[in-house]
């Protein structure tokens, strides 16, 4: 259900970008999805198929997902570490003073259109 809401936003943004560029048909939409963005890629592509096929411009259009690995930075020791494996606690020094560097993205990277 969450992914469907996101899909409606993607469709709106893609249609807007396509119209601004005088594009009638989009063949692929490439997304950057962060590992801890709470988006489940399979659900997103399933919802995409259902919703995109209802739009003339996006019928049959593929949704390609390029994952972005999540990385957390530790203020305690200054090192970075993979978020999913270690969560909030730094594996190097044990500090909880950590914050997410990247991995939260839900971003439309590009659209590919037939010439």
């Amino acid at each position: 259900m969450h992914e469907l809401g996101i899909v409606f936003y993607i469709i709106r943004d893609v249609k807007k970008a396509a119209e601004e560029n005088g594009v009638k048909k989009v063949s692929t939409v490439v997304m950057n999805i962060g590992e801890v963005s709470t988006i489940i890629p399979d659900y997103l592509t399933d919802c995409w198929r259902w919703a995109a096929d209802k739009e003339e411009m996006l019928r049959g259009c593929e949704l390609k997902i390029e994952p972005i690995p999540a990385v957390t930075h530790c203020d305690g020791c200054g090192k970075d570490y993979p978020t999913v494996a270690h969560g909030k606690n730094c594996p190097h020094c044990g500090s909880e003073q950590t914050w997410l560097l990247r991995g939260n993205e839900v971003e439309i990277k590009e659209i590919i259109v037939p010439e």
């Binding site: 993607i10 970008a17 594009v23 971003e107 590919i112 037939p114 010439e115």
Partner: peptide, 18 residues
């Protein structure tokens, strides 16, 4: 421009408009 397709770079968060 590529061979037979055009890539339009967007780089936009879906939360940006909201």
């Amino acid at each position: 421009n590529m061979d037979s397709v055009k890539i339009i770079e967007i780089k936009k968060s879906v939360f940006e408009d909201n």
